[in-house]
Nucleic acid binder design. Sequence first.
DNA 1: ACCGGTATCGGTACCGGTATTGATACCAGT
DNA 2: ACTGGTATCAATACCGGTACCGATACCGGT
Lengths: 344, 344
Amino acid sequence: MKKRKTLADVAAAAGVSKMTASRALRGDKDVSQASVDRVKQAAQEIGYYGNHLAASLSSTHTDLIGVVVPSLENIVFPQVMSGVTDALKGTALQPVFGVTDYDPEVEYATLRNMLSWRPAGLIVTGLDQPEHSRRLLADAGVPIVQIMDSEGEPVDACVGFSHTEAGRDIATALLATGLRRVGYVGGNLDKDLRAARRKAGFRQALRDRGLDLSGEIDGSALPQGGAALPAVACGRRLTAELLARRPELDCIYYSNDDLAFGGLCHCLAAGIDVPGQVALAGFNGLGLIEGFPGKIATSRTARREIGAAAARIILETLQDPAADRSRVQVLKPVISLGALAAES
Amino acid sequence: MKKRKTLADVAAAAGVSKMTASRALRGDKDVSQASVDRVKQAAQEIGYYGNHLAASLSSTHTDLIGVVVPSLENIVFPQVMSGVTDALKGTALQPVFGVTDYDPEVEYATLRNMLSWRPAGLIVTGLDQPEHSRRLLADAGVPIVQIMDSEGEPVDACVGFSHTEAGRDIATALLATGLRRVGYVGGNLDKDLRAARRKAGFRQALRDRGLDLSGEIDGSALPQGGAALPAVACGRRLTAELLARRPELDCIYYSNDDLAFGGLCHCLAAGIDVPGQVALAGFNGLGLIEGFPGKIATSRTARREIGAAAARIILETLQDPAADRSRVQVLKPVISLGALAAES
DNA sequence: ACCGGTATCGGTACCGGTATTGATACCAGT
DNA sequence: ACTGGTATCAATACCGGTACCGATACCGGT
């Protein structure tokens, strides 16, 4: 392989100094149009494309925005990433993604790794990082936006909503339609702390009315904890099990839409009327729910918007670091009861 | 904000030279255990975490693997990314993701951008990059793996399968069960060239038997081209339209599983027996198909495996650039006919 | 012709690390 | 005591750009 082209090559080819070539390519001023043309022409001809490493080291700043999410398998997070990407389109900033698998240690390592690239800003999922991660973020010296949550103290800024409240709200809405014997189906509560808070909020709302969960089951009931199973299939199996044990349930709350949808599949196959016989409620408002309009109640989260809003906060903070804006931005999920609404 | 810690700070705190500190932190040899301990201790105390920009510029190599995918909205690509991430876990290499929105110009820009970070390798979706992008890849001087396809000449290596063949194969399998009046529902064929090739292969297989598509429809039939609609809902609407126009169809092939699933939703709601009255076939083998086991035929693509295999090829090439291995690795989709198989 | 101002360009010193080479200390062997 | 080898560390020269500042050329005004 031939040696990589450097700015010096471009400069030589264009017959100008390195400095002028640098300015010409970056569109700096103080360069004659003639020089700009010659330099760009030369760069084009020899196939030069710059070196971000050198540029960033020299200018002591990058155009990178680190985005840390817990998972790629749950479509919600790619959608958040999409929102970030879209909001950054047309700006100089560029997103870089990292995945933590819901593991705080992996998260810490990912954050350290990202910071060692000296990003211009960081978007991190969740507010409940362990102390050492929080300190890392606090000392980073760049705008930090925590997303998908609003319960707790953000390191810097945050965009999201209260999961406890989300659980409480949908419980309240469901109870208002007259449902009373409520069950719960969960995924991996031990790792997904936000799902756990939704459940807690949900349960709290039940208790506030003198009720409680009339039955529950989670992924650990399945072989290998159900980890190997696609979420939809998992929800289907868990629902079958739960309804076998507690046929009297008139409502099931799931930790997310995929599971809830699996539940619907079971009910359809088993001839159980939804929501007449048993109502189902999920979380997120995924596209697959539209397949059976109205069948599943859900809280529609604004994940693309959250990603976009986070990106915008970073952008604005970089433009005007002084301006003080509200640190917490709440984008509350919108409850959709589907067919239940008509019945109530 | 206090000034960022540098290696010099660590060295000063530990009472050694910059060089020794560098070696100690990287685990190089020729450093006494006592020094290593002191340096690590010092780094820990002052909260030093390195600067990849400087390190990479200095050593003229990075641990970055660029991964370029067309979309994040289709869960298939996050799964590919997951496969890459997993395969790279435990190695020094680190994936960086880029999204092109199926736009060749965006792709070109993304590739240039990635290359200017001097990655150690590149994983790119598809084999049909335009000429200038191909040249960029060919001249990059790092291992390149193109994925999700095997038709055409790879720049370097590739892992995937033939989409033409995939379309042909499922057509053949469907026809073998006696189906004859076959329709097609597509998404954005104009941009997704691989989906277009599947359709072409599918159609070719029909023609080889003296048949042809008995009806077809695509996203452009919907307001805004159906772009705003979730894929499942889109499939549902398109299926309704197509079956209204061509009620005689006994089979519909979709450009992917999401659309096919939408079709199933329509049929269930409309009381159309699947696959008895009309058989449905999708593409990918997504988890949501498991919701109604056997209802939808599909070609199960090994996308996680493809991502992992691509990552492994890069790893091996970096370890031993000389070793010549096969440049094309085919991971053929596995056809699953579901309930159709039993009937035939 | 001389002056100051503007437009354009180049030289130098870094950015924060690492590869390389050279220096130092200490030891055993003879 | 002297030599050679080994272990450990430090100094120097970059990596490929950019910030900063000084230099040059050219202009109109007087």
